[in-house]
Design a protein around this nucleic acid. Structure first.
Lengths: 362, 362
DNA sequence: ACGCACTGGGAATGCGCTTTCCCAATATCC
DNA sequence: GGATATTGGGAAAGCGCATTCCCAGTGCGT
């Protein structure tokens, strides 16, 4: 038993398919009350469900919004996804998900797949890169997106724009002030102490990471401090852990000479920071006593982490929502949504050591 | 400029649309090599992207798999989503996402929407409920699903089957041995100590929660222990926190009389456990010194939590994958995938107190 | 009372593709 | 060598719906 069609409904109601279509799916012309009721009742009794594919074909618009993330299980992306999902619901659309592990070529594939499905708009989250090995992939991605836009698609990119993407109509980017916020974090961190700063960053060429590193260094510089060492590693917990191990060795080695200052480690995202902290701990070091650690993103699930992680709050959900709705169309006034802001949140993990009562406070 | 169509490609290649279709999209009949090349080249030069909607309409199958979760930002669901996404990729399908906050009626809507899009299969994650206020919703959901199945759809449900769902063809459930595992957890916890047990559970009627509670009580019973008190609260971190506050008061109150045993708190999921732990801590209590805490799920992001949380590991990703592929079709032998198993993982949060060296170990 | 603009419904076309059916040309067999 | 398979391509009929165009009926104006 196949699903019933509009035609069947129309026949049962004793009207033409055209009329049935008009009453069941919002049309400019609304048939007379009595007829409408008949049709609706027929539809009800048949359990009619409109075929969205056919509707899409006829209207050439699908009610779909595509979302591209690196990994949906990463809380950062999950939070963004929630925002996108919210916006989608408001727009009465569904979200189509694609995960790409961050590879430009599979992002390109995803865009093509979305284009094939005639997604009304697509949101790309996840940091852009400028690595030379990604150059070709980025170019192709940009071309694919460009084509998608020229065909009437709308795209919302989170963070940096796609490298090489023409500023076509329908191409929006929700920019995140990574650099400024990182600078601010550095400033606040520098204000209350004197320490050696170290940055645990992602691979070179990753915009999000690079921006945060640059910002942090700038903040340090403007506080009159020397630039921090930068350790490059994976943009993941594992990467952070690895870096943490190296740093633990460094800290332990310098322990004897008590003259060395405490290390303040800035990991460019919370997940990495957690990894770094775990590594430090695994080597018997304690935070913030033996080292301060700060992250970035303020991931919700991580807020109960102990010691509470200093970080930069980012309205991830809002970012996702904005990306989805900016791509939805001009809506109201195009000035629309306010720029994204974040704020530095200093918590226990970067507290200055109180030599005496270090263990007391929660 | 609209996207180019198959007809245009065919014209450019000097063949009929039929032939073009045959070469570009896997068909049983493969045209001659030379013709095929001509077509492929034409497609390439036109940047042809097949219209999936039209394909779907013609073939009546969409290459879509629908996923229904409570909240995509919840790490539990995010992990499952990743598994589903994986399976989807293997099947060359895309996943369509719907979040429902767990409300049966919006789940029903989601199913209808998926049906409208002619999703090839749909996966429902998130605990089923048997609350009377959900009864109607559940019935409608079951009806909707049943209709979907009768129309040739496949559904994979995670955990419990939908209440009242007929065992139609194409209806699969990936069952999770919540009860057994909870019993096992109780047994292991009971073995090494004597404590007062308390369960922090979700609202009554939530299968996942109820199963785990029942299992835990059974485990306690078979260890000769009395049933634990059960605190009902939300199935969220906030719920856990609230319960934790109440428990903290209870612990603090009984502190004076040193005769009371340490409390061992079993929260029915990790997120709640974290909330409970946070509440305890906020009241100056320490884990595991003043109370032991255990969770369930072994959420990845929470593994670095301190003190490390005792829990039951569930192969969430695998669960999602299985749900997606069981719904995909018989594949190989239908016995297919092995049953889901989990394992109890005892960590620091339930360690027995060493009155002396309590603060030493990591 | 006649012609007018309207209103409300139906017929028909097309969205882009797959697929069945059909036909011409070549290959195969006795 | 003529008849029968077999191959390779095209024509055309939908898939389920939206929508444009058309037409009958109604109200109105003068």
């Amino acid at each position: 038993m196949a699903a019933s069609t509009l035609t069947e409904v129309a026949r049962l109601a004793g009207v033409s398919p055209a009329t049935a279509s008009r009453v069941l799916n919002g049309s400019a012309r609304i048939p007379g009350k009595d007829i409408a009721d008949r049709v609706r009742q027929a539809a009800e009794s048949l359990g009619y469900i409109p075929n969205a594919q056919a509707q899409g074909l006829a209207k050439s618009s699908s009610g779909l919004i595509g979302l591209i993330v690196h990994d949906i299980a990463d809380p950062y992306f999950a939070a963004i996804a929630r925002g996108v999902q919210d916006a989608a619901r408001e727009q009465h659309k569904m979200v189509l998900l694609a995960t790409t592990e961050g590879a430009p070529d599979s992002e390109k594939e995803a865009v093509a797949a979305f284009a094939a499905r005639r997604a009304d708009s697509i949101v790309i989250a996840g940091s852009r890169t400028s690595r030379t090995e990604d150059l070709e992939g980025n170019t192709e991605l940009a071309a694919e997106l460009d084509r998608y836009c020229r065909n009437g698609g709308h795209v919302g990119v989170i963070g940096h724009g796609i490298v090489g993407a023409a500023t076509a109509d329908g191409y929006h980017v929700v920019s995140v002030p990574n650099e400024e916020l990182a600078a601010q974090l550095a400033t606040e961190l520098a204000a209350s102490r004197e320490e050696d700063f170290v940055i645990v960053g992602g691979p070179e060429g990753l915009f999000t990471s690079d921006d945060r590193i640059r910002g942090f260094q700038r903040g340090l510089a403007s506080a009159g401090l020397p630039a921090a060492d930068v350790i490059r590693t994976d943009f993941t917990r594992a990467g952070g852990f690895e870096a943490g191990l190296a740093l633990a060795a460094r800290i332990t080695a310098s322990q004897p000479g008590t003259a060395t200052k405490r290390l303040c480690i800035f990991a460019v995202n919370d997940v990495m920071a957690i990894g770094t902290a775990a590594a430090l701990r695994s080597q018997g070091l304690r935070i913030p006593r033996d080292a301060a650690v700060a992250g970035f993103d303020d991931i919700e699930t991580l807020r109960d982490f102990r010691p509470a992680l200093s970080t930069v709050h980012l309205p991830l959900e809002e970012i996702g929502r904005q990306a989805a709705s900016s791509a939805a169309g001009p809506s109201a006034d195009d000035a629309g949504s306010p720029p994204i802001t974040g704020q530095v949140i200093l918590r226990r993990s970067t507290e200055v050591a109180h030599p005496t009562s270090a263990e007391s406070a929660a």
